[in-house]
């Protein structure tokens, strides 16, 4: 069934929190908290909590990066030192550990950072502009609650959202 969207804008985080609590306890058929998205100018952990667990997996990719990056890097560096025309420099061993450790350390950081950034973009679904409803004021000072719902339960949801002094409630056609 085709879903429809509604976006309510609040200026007070407490009102938004109350709206979310009401939505949670409303028991509307076909409605799940996973369909609710908060859009806000800053992070509101106290509001996100109300949405239930939304886990973050970035750290595991970071771990992968910091494990794979330096090991492959060290092997590449050491084999590059060995494979090029056999060069002795300054009497040091051809594959010396201290310099290789320095470079491995840098690769450790670099791969960690790159993996973090890449996985973050994947997790945040960026780049992309897939969200159906957006209002510029959520980047200024308003908190938006976006609900994806069946057209049938839309009036009920709008009623709940309207209970807590929203500045505006917008539907799909508002675009």
């Amino acid at each position: 069934m085709k879903k429809t969207h509604t976006l309510a804008l609040y200026s007070d985080p407490d009102e938004a929190a109350n709206a979310l609590k009401d939505l949670k306890s409303s028991g509307i058929s076909g409605f799940r908290m996973d369909d609710v998205i908060i859009k806000s100018p800053i992070d509101h952990p106290e509001l996100s909590e109300l949405l239930g667990p939304r886990p973050v997996y970035i750290q595991w990719f970071t771990l992968l990066g910091v494990l794979l990056g330096p090991t492959t890097g060290l092997v590449l560096i050491a084999s590059a030192q060995a494979s090029f025309i056999y060069q002795v420099r300054g009497g040091r061993p051809v594959v010396p550990f201290p310099p290789d450790m320095v470079l491995t350390y840098e690769l450790f950081i670099l791969s960690g950072v790159l993996m973090t950034v890449l996985s973050t973009f994947v997790a945040m679904k960026l780049p992309g502009n897939r969200s159906p409803l957006y209002n510029a004021s959520v980047s200024e000072d308003k908190i938006g609650i976006l609900v994806k719902t069946d057209p049938a339960s839309l009036p009920q949801i709008n009623e709940i959202l309207g209970r807590h002094k929203p500045l505006e409630i917008m539907g799909d056609n508002a675009r």
């Binding site: 998205i37 859009k39 939304r54 973050v56 970035i58 973009f121 945040m124 960026l126 780049p127 969200s131």
Partner: peptide, 26 residues
């Protein structure tokens, strides 16, 4: 990149930003 400030974006963003800070200091 189409940032909209959704809760998921903020949640991931905070973790990623802190992780990067921890890498950048050393």
């Amino acid at each position: 990149l189409g940032w909209q400030g959704t809760d998921r974006q903020w949640g991931n963003f905070k973790v990623a930003y802190m992780t990067m800070a921890c890498f950048l200091m050393p």
